[in-house]
């Protein structure tokens, strides 16, 4: 048999089938069947009629949006200042912001929990606030990095051109720098918003009593309700797909430059 370069792709094809396609098919199967293996739309109906699941969806959205906005507001100035400064140590400072990522996740959250305990007394009193603090702490580097990359790649001559044409610093920022950093904002937002929608370990560890989508799915599976849990997972997946497609199209429209890590 002649060696074909295509055969090099076989391991990847196997990987995709076993770890991506097959689980998705299982998810579909469970989502649209009941305990007896019969096709049913009951799970779907249940999701949209149960105030509990809808409430959780709404709550998850709120947490994810607030976390994303807080991350963006914190990260943009940091990224902007670092990317535009002439500081020789700027890569060191950037590293300091990113360094928490190198430390074990549960260790970080445990430490945060202790700090919040001291500050708040009873963690259960401020579930929403704690969720946002925990996730912001966890996801901030994912917002800073793409923003930093995008802004530092902006041609400095563009800012100078704007000033040359009569724009002061604020106008230059609003008319040139900000619009041109949109690709970075979009990748930062996707990298924070998506995990914020699904991550529930942070909340669990902060003794959070409230449910978000992730914990809701977890609880279904813990109760052996694989069909309900699969449906919620599928719906979440669909929403994330939609979000990614939307942000992707905005990005393409804005400019052709990609800006990931």
């Amino acid at each position: 048999m002649a060696f074909s370069r295509k055969s090099l792709g076989i391991p990847y094809a196997v990987f995709l089938v076993v770890f991506v396609a097959a689980p998705l098919l299982f998810l579909f199967y469970y989502a649209f069947t009941d305990g007896q293996g019969q096709f049913t739309m009951q799970n779907l109906l249940h999701f949209f009629t149960d105030p509990n699941t809808l409430g959780t969806l709404y709550y998850s959205f709120s947490i994810a949006i607030v976390t994303t906005v807080v991350c963006l507001l914190l990260a943009y100035p940091v990224a902007y200042i670092l990317a535009t400064s002439r500081l020789r140590q700027r890569s060191v400072i950037l590293m300091l912001f990113v360094m928490p990522m190198w430390i074990n996740f549960s260790l970080r959250i445990t430490a945060l929990k202790e700090i919040l305990n001291v500050l708040e007394g009873n963690l259960a009193m401020y579930p929403f606030l704690n969720a946002v603090i925990g996730m912001t702490y966890d996801f901030l580097p994912f917002m800073i990095l793409p923003l930093y990359t995008t802004i530092s790649r902006l041609d400095g001559a563009l800012r100078e051109a704007a000033m040359d044409l009569g724009a002061n610093d604020v106008q230059t920022f609003l008319r040139v720098t900000l619009p041109l950093s949109v690709p970075g904002i979009i990748s930062g937002v996707s990298m924070v918003f998506l995990p914020a929608m699904t991550n529930y370990v942070v909340l669990d560890m902060l003794y959070n009593s409230t449910y978000i989508m992730g914990s809701l799915i977890g609880s279904y599976f813990a109760a052996y309700n694989w069909h309900g849990g699969s449906m919620i997972s599928l719906i979440l997946l669909a929403m994330i797909c939609l979000f990614t497609l939307l942000s992707g199209s905005v990005e393409e429209e804005g400019s052709a430059r990609g800006a990931l890590l």
Binding site: D155, L158, E160, A161, D164, L180
Partner: peptide
Amino acid sequence: LPPYRRPINTVFQRYALFPH
């Protein structure tokens, strides 16, 4: 005077046109 208050305009080396 800052650049934006000078009645002088520049054509930049690599044009620096706003891509957006």
